Amino acid sequence: MASLLFLPHATRTPTPRAATPRPRTAGTITCGPRDKRGPLQRGRSLSTEAIHAVQSLKRLTAADRSPSAARVAASASLGRLLRADLLAAMAELQRQGHWALALAALHVARAEPWYRPDPALYATFVSSAPPSDPAAGAAVDALVDAFLEEKARGAAAPAEGPWEGEDVYKLTRLVRALVAKGRARAAWRVYEAAVRTGGLEVDECMYRVMAKGMRRLGLEAEAAEVEADFADWEARVLPPARGVLDEMRAREASGTGNDKATAAASNL
């Protein structure tokens, strides 16, 4: 009789249990990126080269942040950056409150072959100027002088003026920023060079910003001159527009009268 020890034992196969789904809470990450890219951010993120350049500039100027030392350090740290990285580093320095270092970065950008005087760029510098710094006002005035000097020698062709093709919206941003910072004389120099001397054709917004700003900052004579320029602009630009508007209103009135006559005839 065979021993029961040598008989094969039947093994039970475990029944697979259904996986219980875990409750998904708000903020739970269910799937991550499959490459080495970082998370997406709003706005333009700094490149690695720009981050290293900003850190190097701040480290080199930790002990001495005088304008001369900042320019030397900025030239060494930011001089090899591409255009987009240099502009991004400049904006990041302004965001962090290192306005003097951002000015040094602007000095580096001026030496680049791609640089063109952009009123929007200068408007950001004026808007981000520290209000409590007594030297910031003089620095803003120096920025305006540099901008006007760059525009004076930056004409595309001898036959064209330096303000030919200028973006009026960007220039209005610069003037508005100067008025908001209380730099009335600087705003007037920009307006006089671009509009009164340069012959730039601006819109109603520029005239209103300048007139209100000059009067609020105590320059009554300049405000009167701006209002006179605005009156001349209205006399030159608005009459054709008024003629078109009157013609459109006449057509609308005649169309309304014809509709009323048609409705009355249909009721009969």
Rank of each mutant, 00 (worst) to 15 (best):
G218V: 03
A53P: 11
V190K: 02
T61C: 10
V54Q: 05
Y191L: 02
E222N: 14
T20Q: 14
A261W: 04
P239I: 03
W188D: 04
L238H: 06
E192M: 00
D232L: 13
K212P: 01
K260G: 15
V126Q: 09
R216D: 12
G165I: 00
A152T: 01
P239R: 09
A88D: 14
R71G: 06
T28Y: 04
S127N: 03
R176I: 08
I29T: 14
R196P: 08
A84F: 07
D85W: 01
W188K: 06
V190P: 02
T48Y: 11
E222L: 11
M206K: 02
A73T: 13
E247Y: 10
A228P: 12
A180N: 00
T124R: 06
R153V: 10
Q94V: 01
D141Q: 07
M214L: 10
A184G: 08
S3I: 10
T30A: 15
A10C: 11
T256L: 13
E247M: 03
Y207C: 07
P119R: 00
D133Y: 07
V54Y: 01
P131Y: 06
L87N: 07
V144P: 08
T197V: 07
D229C: 09
R173E: 09
R44C: 09
R44K: 12
K181P: 02
R17Y: 11
A194K: 04
L174P: 06
M248S: 14
A264M: 04
L57C: 07
